[in-house]
Amino acid sequence: MIRRTTLLSTIAFSLLLGACSKHPEAADAGEGKQAQAAADAQVAEAPAAEPAPERKLDYWKALGPLLAGSYNGNCLRMPDGRRMEALVTIGADGKVASGDMQLDFHAAKMAMMMRSRDEKGQYSTVGTLAIDDGKTGMLSLMSSPAGKESTISLSSGDIGLMCSNNSGVGSFNNQALFLTAAKLLNGKKQSIGCLDTKNLLVRRKVDVEVVDGVIRIGDDAFDMKTAVSEGFTLMEGGSSLMLNVVMPQEKTVNVAYDGAGKLVNVQARDKQESTHFCSIEN
């Protein structure tokens, strides 16, 4: 009986081997499923890829030459209200110092510059930078026509200086701001979807570019050299830039870019109504 059982087992094992040799695809399929399962497990265990870092404009390379210098004047020190002579130095690298205040504005969260022209053709310029929410550090400069009533203020927490009659502040009033903004934008032509302001159901692609001080929106051109006021605002450390221009006859133009220099929004209006309304499609 034992010999018979052994013989039957040997025969059954031989038949099983023969079946596998006749159908190798069955064995391969089994191995393939195991390999796929192992690969799936490895993918599941692998950490998710890190998102690409947000691109930001390094705007201090444009602001540095505009603001760098030494500014001294009659100052009011806060919080004690003491009157004193003080010197504020602004480096081309964004580092600002006065007495015991040492601040770095290179990657300030917000930067705003605005230059306006009066009826006599004289300019006034205002600039404000905030490191974060304004509590860590804030810098403000103002230059009135011919350098009169020029002021500078610097603060860090509760400590601050407010200075008037500053020598040197008038120097940053002599340059058109669109020239500064141009250093941050590559000037290439970009297309964006614009609503037809006469028929809001119609949307069409329009070419927009800012070159040589001229904003071109389709067939319309706005020469910033004739602007009544011009300015730009950078937010979130350079992740967005808004160019703002007021032209004669109360025409206004706003052009916005992201931190990679991509056009995201364009708006323009005259005294009566909106003339351009453009934005990227989500």
Rank of each mutant, 00 (worst) to 15 (best):
M1W: 12
R3C: 05
T6S: 08
T6V: 14
L7Q: 15
T10Y: 10
A12E: 09
L15G: 11
L15M: 15
L17T: 13
G18K: 00
A19T: 12
A19D: 11
K22V: 13
K22N: 09
H23N: 15
H23L: 13
P24V: 05
E25R: 01
A27L: 12
A27T: 14
D28C: 08
A29F: 11
G30Y: 15
G30K: 14
G32I: 00
A35R: 15
Q36R: 11
Q36V: 11
A37T: 13
V43Q: 10
E45C: 03
E45S: 14
A46W: 13
A48L: 12
A49V: 08
E50G: 00
P51F: 06
K56D: 05
L63C: 07
G64K: 09
G64M: 09
L67N: 04
A68H: 11
A68T: 05
N74F: 07
C75I: 02
L76R: 09
M84C: 11
M84D: 09
M84Y: 02
L87D: 05
T89L: 01
A92E: 13
G94Y: 02
K95A: 09
K95S: 08
V96M: 02
D100P: 10
L103E: 01
L103P: 02
D104L: 03
A107L: 12
A107W: 09
K120C: 06
Q122Y: 10
Q122R: 11
T125Q: 03
T128W: 01
D133I: 00
S143H: 07
S144N: 13
P145G: 04
A146C: 00
K148L: 08
K148D: 10
E149G: 01
I152F: 06
S153D: 03
S155C: 02
G157I: 02
G160I: 02
M162K: 04
C163T: 01
N166T: 10
N166K: 03
S167I: 13
S167Q: 13
G168W: 09
G170E: 13
N173Y: 04
Q175R: 10
A176S: 12
F178G: 06
L179E: 15
L185T: 13
Q190V: 04
S191C: 04
I192K: 05
G193K: 13
L195C: 06
L200M: 14
R203H: 14
V206C: 04
E209L: 10
V210L: 15
I215E: 03
G218A: 05
D219G: 06
D219F: 05
D220H: 12
A221C: 06
A221H: 13
M224Q: 12
K225D: 14
T226F: 04
V228E: 06
S229L: 08
G231S: 07
F232T: 07
F232P: 02
S240G: 14
S240R: 12
N244C: 00
V245Q: 02
V246C: 00
M247H: 06
P248C: 04
P248F: 05
Q249R: 10
V253W: 03
D258K: 00
G259Y: 03
G261A: 02
N265V: 00
V266Y: 02
R269P: 01
R269V: 00
R269E: 12
K271F: 15
S274Q: 15
T275P: 03
C278H: 06
S279R: 14
S279V: 12
I280P: 03
